[in-house]
């Protein structure tokens, strides 16, 4: 094989691979910009929380309603994450030594709620759904007008780790508002 043949093969090969990489990066950037990043390399996954709280166990297995824990969702701006004290309604003190726990996993996770002195500490949950600061999203009117939690948050009941399922960009919001004859005045959300 002489040099000429090598060049004839290598130049298009390198050119093609460079073009492919550029196309892949371009697709990734544009997709992330217009919608949400493609679910590759862990981009579609939810963040790792300080405590592995499985919604599957609580919602699907135990049958707890969303609003039992996220109490302010029908009256306030934020759905609110419950205080640790509320976790302890069910996970009482007898269970945290691990002996009375339903599973070994649960005992390990529940033990993380306590500091060295044995006092329950608040959990620094990692935020999953974040809107820009110039958006004032209020949960209450959505719940009051019959929008189900799953419409925006997906089937959380079957999520071991909560992740964002909709891109929640402005187009996403406005499309739904138009379909449901909800206000589309800018000052509905931006103020």
């Amino acid at each position: 094989m002489n040099n000429n043949t090598l060049i004839k093969i290598m130049v298009p090969a390198i050119g093609l691979s460079v073009a492919l990489v550029v196309a892949a990066v371009g697709y990734f950037v544009l997709q992330s910009w217009w919608s949400s990043p493609p679910a590759v390399l862990g981009f579609g996954d939810g963040p790792t929380q300080p405590i592995a709280f499985p919604h599957t166990t609580h919602v699907t297995d135990a049958g707890i309603d969303c609003q039992f824990c996220h109490r302010q969702v029908s009256t306030d701006e934020a759905a609110t994450v419950p205080a640790v004290a509320q976790c302890l309604f069910c996970h009482d003190f007898g269970r945290i030594d691990g002996k009375k726990s339903e599973s070994d996993n649960a005992a390990v996770e529940l033990a993380k709620l306590y500091d060295e002195g044995g006092n329950p500490q608040s959990v620094n949950w990692v935020r999953v759904h974040r809107l820009p600061d110039h958006v004032q999203f209020v949960h209450a009117p959505h719940i009051q007008n019959g929008v189900s939690c799953t419409t925006c948050h997906g089937d959380v009941a079957s999520m071991e780790v909560v992740k964002q399922v909709r891109n929640l960009k402005m187009r996403d919001c406005v499309d739904c508002h138009r379909d449901n004859n909800a206000p589309t005045d800018c000052a509905t959300c931006h103020y």
Binding site: Q144, N145, G146, C176, N181
Partner: peptide
């Protein structure tokens, strides 16, 4: 998506 009550339109407001 089901809505139980009809939300007000912009014109109503």
């Amino acid at each position: 998506m089901a809505t139980q009550t009809k939300p007000q339109s912009a014109t109503d407001r």
